[in-house]
């Protein structure tokens, strides 16, 4: 929640946050998530990409109680409330890590333009498709 006023300029750019690190061993994943949430106040066209070890950020059932760090994984499910609704996950990265879509959290958003229908935020894409997503951005932020 933020008291930042609405962005006045009205210029909307396409922002892609690229996530390539596993969640708890380093600070990158949490830093990225915080920047995404802060950036959401500026009402830009935001997408997130998860590839390489970044796909581990979305694995369901994470419980950090015994390693003494905050479990920020539930926060990904709140991204839809911040109008961040495009989470691209690379199929090849999942497969190389012995993971499938069923190992990931269910992340939904309510579609304002479709009578608030609940829709999945995660979009599985292959490497070629993800490259095209990257090519179509105005700004890329890497973590």
């Amino acid at each position: 929640m933020s008291d930042i006023p609405e962005e006045a300029s009205g210029i909307v750019k396409k922002f892609l946050y690229v996530n390539r690190k596993a969640p708890h061993g380093t600070i990158y994943a949490l830093e990225s998530l915080e920047v995404v949430l802060i950036g959401a106040a500026f009402e830009q066209d935001v997408s997130l990409a998860f590839l390489d070890d970044g796909v581990f950020q979305l694995v369901k059932g994470q419980d950090t109680a015994d390693i003494g760090v905050k479990n920020f994984s539930p926060t990904y499910r709140a991204l839809g409330d911040f109008e961040v609704t495009k989470l691209y996950v690379e199929k090849e990265s999942l497969a190389e890590r012995g993971l499938s879509k069923d190992d990931l959290m269910e992340i939904m958003y309510e579609d304002e333009d479709d009578d608030w229908e609940e829709k999945p935020s995660i979009k599985l894409v292959n490497r070629t498709e993800l490259a095209a997503v990257m090519a179509g951005q105005d700004v890329i932020l890497s973590f």
């Binding site: 708890h24 694995v59 059932g61 419980d63 950090t64 015994d66 390693i67 760090v69 012995g98 190992d103």
Partner: peptide
């Protein structure tokens, strides 16, 4: 190490 497996959502079945 179990606590590190749990933190990453890796159950025994995986």
């Amino acid at each position: 190490l179990g606590p590190d497996l749990n933190a990453r959502g890796l159950g025994e079945a995986k």
